[in-house]
Computed example of a mutant assay.
Amino acid sequence: MSRNRITLTGIACVAALGLAACGGGGSYGGGSDGKASTATREASTATDISTVKVSDSPLGHILVDGAGRTLYLFTADGKNTNSMKCDTACLKLWPPAEGKPKAGSGADAGLIGTTKGSAPQATYAGHPLYYYAKDKAPEDLKGQGIDGIWYVLNAKGSAVKQAAPSTDSDGDSGY
């Protein structure tokens, strides 16, 4: 029994070291006040803002990142300006898409930019881009229309204001 316990402890330590080595590669977090947040980084681990591209969805052609995660705009933001005053909980739920992306399939390179500041946030048609932490899979649209201020964007950079598809019994997108 003691040998099994030692083996399990060793496996757990190796796994923990492996996970620690995987983290910290990107710069996520930092709202308008420039503060990085561990919670924000954790919520954003599946992001790839190196590319902004267009993908088919039940809402039509929408913007996604290089990993296929849905990108959102916040209607109160100014052109190329993150106006969102966000505490840690807010940043965890709506992490900014930080970095300088390139145009992928279907995206207009002339519409891609960044906000100014210590942690540039990706923009499209002047809209700062965000993720929604409850979107777990590339196809998720769970942030669509929340509070009437969060929307996906189409290839022209306009907010898509139609309702998101209904969800199934476990709360996941039904497609």
Rank of each mutant, 00 (worst) to 15 (best):
C90Y: 03
S118F: 03
A89W: 04
E42N: 15
E139G: 15
K35Q: 08
A137D: 15
L19P: 04
A164W: 00
G126I: 12
H127K: 05
T40W: 12
F74T: 14
Y124G: 10
L19H: 10
Y151F: 15
G143W: 06
G30N: 07
G171A: 09
L73C: 13
Q162M: 05
K100C: 10
K92H: 06
S57P: 04
S83C: 05
A12E: 03
P128E: 13
G171T: 07
T88H: 04
S55P: 07
C86K: 04
K85W: 07
L91G: 05
Q121R: 14
D87C: 03
K85E: 15
T70K: 08
H127W: 07
D65V: 04
E42V: 15
S32R: 14
L93P: 08
K92Y: 02
L153F: 08
G25W: 06
D56L: 04
G10C: 13
T114S: 01
D140P: 14
G60S: 01
T45A: 14
R3M: 11
L71N: 10
G78A: 12
S44L: 14
S55A: 13
I62H: 00
K161T: 15
S158G: 10
P101Y: 08
G106E: 03
L63S: 00
L17C: 11
S169Q: 14
A12P: 00
A155R: 12
G104N: 02
P95L: 07
A39I: 03
K79E: 02
A137F: 10
Q121M: 12
A119S: 06
Y175Q: 07
V52C: 14
